[in-house]
Write a protein that binds this DNA or RNA. Structure first.
Lengths: 329, 329
DNA sequence: TTGTAAGCGTTATCAC
DNA sequence: GTGATAACGCTTACAA
């Protein structure tokens, strides 16, 4: 009767190598140990196929080499890329990654955080929308794109500058009456600054603009656009949209109403989405530096120091020409 | 001096409630306990904000309520959706999910599996390409889309039938000379059956067809197509592609060469990709039942019984019309 | 430098 | 039904 696949423990390794338990532990934790011992231990470990049990270690040390990420969804160009980049970056630091999805539902977000806390994660990277968010368990927490009231660091694109760039670009491309269209959660977040930057540039440069805001959802936005066009009050020649997705929706509606993009109206979105199938930009857009966002988030969480972490880190964005402006080849 | 945020343990709860440690454990594990005790324990737990420590529990029980998923990448329409569905499904069973990405690199795959084994995951759901894959650690393992040599269950779309459906549909839509184009890893996998089903239908129904295979990559495939068109040997009026992505690539090349889709050539892909921005099908396609794939994979892993799990589970596919066939409105 | 032993927070076994 | 007590696999003072 075979030994029934028993998973070898440190004790087994110690016995096999003929050394004390503590010595084995030291070898696996990089503490100095007599060379001959180290070799014996390593050989014994290899022979037995030993791997340290992270659960036992985690229990003892309260560190688990595990980070959790919390996303509204995965099946989405921006979120999937961000998720992938974060996982890759953590992996390169030898960390495992828990992933949860919340649907932007505060209840689900809270539940995730509880679960994650229970799993003794070393930290949380979250893109969350809970206005009442409260970091239970005192775990290092980094937020992406959503700034909490000073309680934890937020990593985000430089949304403000992005808004300015968009306005400037539209103007440079000949637009004289601009519109900023946004939808999104009513919760104030970093992304609101896209609009503020846009406004600021328009005001500073005395460019005429309007803002159209659909708090609830995209349908409402489309509805408003249609009304304006049908009323004849739609006289814009440049639109900045808070996301690429919104841009596409609006463009399709404008097309349907006989307005051509970019001939009649030029449009710039936000995200820098690339079409998966063609590799081309979905639209003209302000590109978010996703890889960097991920790298910085991971770095911040791994070097977390509650005293000394900055509360907001903005990463630079840039304009990418696409098929919705006249500078597209 | 405050108690420095000490996380309460079962012992604390027991003390607070004035009961024995074992009683608290029973309450939290649903074992029968005197009603008055249960109430005292629950109140004490709430008061202290106690949550059971999954690491300690995992160490004791060797179950962690954690599943790992291993994907080639996340930033991809099919994989991101699959990943999200699996996470959601696991979450609904109160499981946490580790996610790793491997880039289809066998070395990375092996590394992931090692890490995962070390973290004492309760099971692995993987979409892997390692021909020499070997399930170390004897962890329940479910493969998606890739059948190993009988060693573990594989969940997949009914690729064979999908191929048949595609051939039949093209024929129904008037195509008389068909082509099957595939790229992909040289490792034999479930997806190869797409071609077999296609061939089978053509043979059974005496429809003329060819197969073009680019083992290495997409560029090579595009090259071959171009050659055929330039040679004048391209006389197909219906193409079945092993993935939607490949379809788009080929379509773009054909367009460039002056061939119109679907007027001159009709095309059907595989995956059922929906354009994220418009919500419309990217192309005519055989749809994979992603949610179901996820559900079944999770179910299989959670009810794993090495004796009794089927080695292959095929889920039904269906044809979805899109802009690359003439039945598209 | 090496070995010993005391926990870490749970669960499971047994007497009571 | 309840409550001591011994593991689980590992780290870490501390003693040798």
């Amino acid at each position: 009767m075979k030994n029934k696949e028993r998973i070898p423990t440190m004790k087994d390794v110690a016995a096999e190598a003929g050394v004390a338990l503590g010595t084995v532990s030291k070898v696996f934790n990089g503490f100095p140990v007599g060379e001959s011992y180290r070799i014996r231990v390593e050989q014994a470990a290899k022979k037995l196929g030993y791997r340290v049990n992270n659960y036992a270690r985690g229990m003892r040390t309260n560190r688990t080499n595990t980070i959790s990420i919390i996303m509204p969804m995965i099946c989405h160009p921006f979120f999937s890329k961000l998720t992938e980049c974060i996982i890759r970056e953590l992996d390169s630091h030898n960390y495992n990654t828990f992933v949860s999805v919340t649907d932007r539902n505060p209840k689900a977000e809270a539940r995730c955080i509880r679960m994650v806390a229970q799993n003794k994660t070393d930290g949380i990277i979250a893109l969350t929308y809970d206005p009442d968010f409260n970091n239970i368990g005192n775990i290092p927490f980094v937020s992406i794109d959503r700034s909490f009231t000073g309680s934890c660091p937020c990593i985000t694109s430089d949304n403000y500058t992005g808004g300015q760039i968009a306005a400037a670009k539209l103007h440079e491309l000949g637009c004289r009456k601009l519109l900023y269209a946004r939808t999104g959660s009513p919760v104030p977040g970093e992304t609101d600054k896209r609009g503020y930057g846009f406004e600021n540039w328009c005001q500073t440069n005395s460019v005429s603009y309007d803002i159209i805001n659909a708090k609830v959802d995209n349908d409402q936005m489309i509805e408003k656009i249609r009304e304006m066009v049908e009323n004849g009050t739609f006289d814009y020649d440049g639109i900045f949209c808070s996301t690429d997705l919104l841009l596409i929706l609006i463009r399709n509606e404008l097309n349907r109403l006989g307005i051509r993009i970019p001939e009649d109206v030029q449009m710039i979105g936000f995200d820098g989405s690339i079409d998966f199938y063609t590799g081309l930009p979905v639209c003209s857009s302000i590109e978010q530096p996703i890889e960097q966002l991920a790298k910085v988030a991971v770095n911040t969480i791994l070097n977390y120091d509650s005293e000394n972490t900055p509360s907001l880190i903005c990463l630079p964005v840039r304009y990418i020409p696409g098929p919705t402006t006249k500078d597209w080849i």
